[in-house]
Design a protein around this nucleic acid. Structure first.
Lengths: 309, 309
DNA sequence: GATGCTTACGATACCCGTAAAGATA
DNA sequence: TATCTTTACGGGTATCGTAAGCATC
């Protein structure tokens, strides 16, 4: 048993049991992949993968049991390397943030520029993805920190910290009839076509929920991943936009206006999430602190690393 | 970085930084040990060990941080092998129980013979040790299951299940004056020399506590690890014995008699402990179930393996 | 026929042990 | 001086890639 074999096992499960892909992903020859799998299976005395002829189809029962242990082991190996770098090059390295478009474009932009000034030697990677993909990236170790509004808090392998709370805002073009109402209700809004986020995003579920509770079926004519896309189509007069308020800036979005009145949608909490037991470099903790000053100090570190062992 | 290097790091910390001992323990040459340590330090780019000249003295700060991760990683490697054996040879393997003399001799003797009948192919190893050493063996992976009355429950890396509750019994030779009292008190007993367990053992702390609360300083003339030793000296008239009631059998200990009356000492709980995240073979769980039938099923397994990751 | 996995074979790198030399107590 | 660690060197093995062969789709 060696690390390479375990890496191959993990990658095989991730790459849908296509050994050629595994070989490419790990920059090794495909024959080596085959042999390593066979060797490890021989050593353990059991089959990890279900085969039909020469093709691999999936994990066997023992394979399913073993995989989580293999993943934890490899994660610890990566932690060891991270920890070493942490001591040798305190302010150098890589920090991968996975987040949604809206956060990347609006909420964390200033924080990122501040972070880059503070840590010029850190390679900062910001990957945009939907909340599910963000969670996957955190779990696989591709990303260090995830920021999103939905679902991250529900994954048990992740630790989520509250970042900020917000409610959806409603934006319309100038002169829109809704602007004449002092306190527009959901029913008023639903009289127009709706443009808002895609199902997997930014608290879209909360929007749906509010309409469902009011017994209204809104006419959502366009769902987008991206606040800018939404605003653009609202500008074009295609409908009423329901967006995150951080994506609306009266000075820049001169063709749009935000509706006033009482809150119509439930509150959302955007969270910062890290995989449990993931070793974050000190600048990673600093990034979290830049996001939310109250998330400073050892409490965050303890929450991430405390694994009861 | 490879497994051998990590094993060497772990063993070096365990063997007091004597590389010759490490080499012997791992059945490799000490030049190999030296080289592996140096290679790993070079790869990580930092020193793991404090050196004076050529001698190793201890762990550096990074070394101290890394060691727990290394230990968890190696533990997972062993879990992988255990898990594989679990699937290939369900009823074969090794089960190491670390326990105190009293438990081994009295409480679990029948359970052990039943276990051996049930799993004739399992090599059962019972190691006697004091509670602290039992905890160490569980943590190092030398033992799978630990049974003791003290301290195991206080180690956070261990999961402890209640086995049974008991109070110390007082034994004296036939015709002893204490037998004449209907309900002897602590002060009556303390009038005689006391023979009981050694400090680290079998709830001795509770005995001390009872006397302390009563404001009495007992004259403990003999402390033993072993209930049989205590009983022998009580038989010889050297004093009053305070032992675990499971060690007293009226039919066999014909020269001794147990004092009646109200309980004088606080209750003890003997526990069964396993290291958190340790992979127990199915017959290991069966052993626990034999000890305490209420500790059956998946709850025990979940408590051991649930590590929040 | 295209894709995917295995086997065969040779080069390289790595791991290990012996032996000698150097440090430390 | 005895114990302990490092360095040097050589043999054996493991690992890897190329290339050919063989299933599977």
């Amino acid at each position: 048993m060696n690390f390479q074999q375990l890496r191959i096992i993990r990658e095989t499960a991730r790459r849908d049991f296509n050994l050629t892909e595994v070989a490419n992903a790990l920059y090794i020859s495909q024959s080596g992949v085959s042999k390593h799998i066979r060797d490890l299976e021989d050593e353990l005395g059991l089959q990890l993968f279900v085969r039909r002829g020469k093709r691999l189809l999936g994990l066997t029962e023992p394979g399913r049991e073993l995989l989580p242990v293999v993943e934890r082991l490899l994660h610890d190996a990566s932690n060891i390397r991270q920890l070493a770098e942490h001591f040798t090059r305190k302010d150098e390295g890589r920090l991968a943030i996975a987040t949604t478009h809206t956060q990347a474009r609006y909420r964390i932009a200033d924080l990122v520029s501040q972070f880059v000034r503070e840590f010029p030697k850190v390679r900062l990677e910001i990957v945009e993805a939907n909340p599910q993909a963000i969670a996957d990236r955190l779990l696989s170790g591709e990303a260090d920190i995830g920021i999103a509004t939905e679902s991250l808090g529900e994954v048990p392998e992740l630790v989520a910290f509250p970042f900020y709370r917000w409610r959806h805002a409603i934006v319309v073009p100038h002169g829109h009839p809704l602007l004449a109402l002092p306190a527009p209700a959901l029913a008023d809004i639903a009289a127009y076509p709706i443009i808002t986020y895609h199902e997997a995003f930014a608290g879209r579920r909360r929007v749906n929920e509010a309409f469902r509770l009011a017994g209204i079926v809104p006419n959502v004519i366009l769902s987008a991943v991206d606040s800018d896309v939404i605003k653009r189509y609202v500008e074009l007069g295609l409908g009423v936009g329901i967006v995150s308020p951080i994506a609306f800036d009266p000075r820049r979005d001169t063709q749009l206006q935000q509706l006033g009145g009482t809150p119509l949608f439930p509150e959302n909490t955007t969270v910062i999430a890290v995989r449990r037991g993931h070793f974050l470099r000190s600048f990673g903790y600093r990034f979290i602190e830049l996001c939310a000053p109250e998330l400073a100090g050892d409490a965050v570190r303890a929450a991430i690393l405390d694994d009861d062992r």
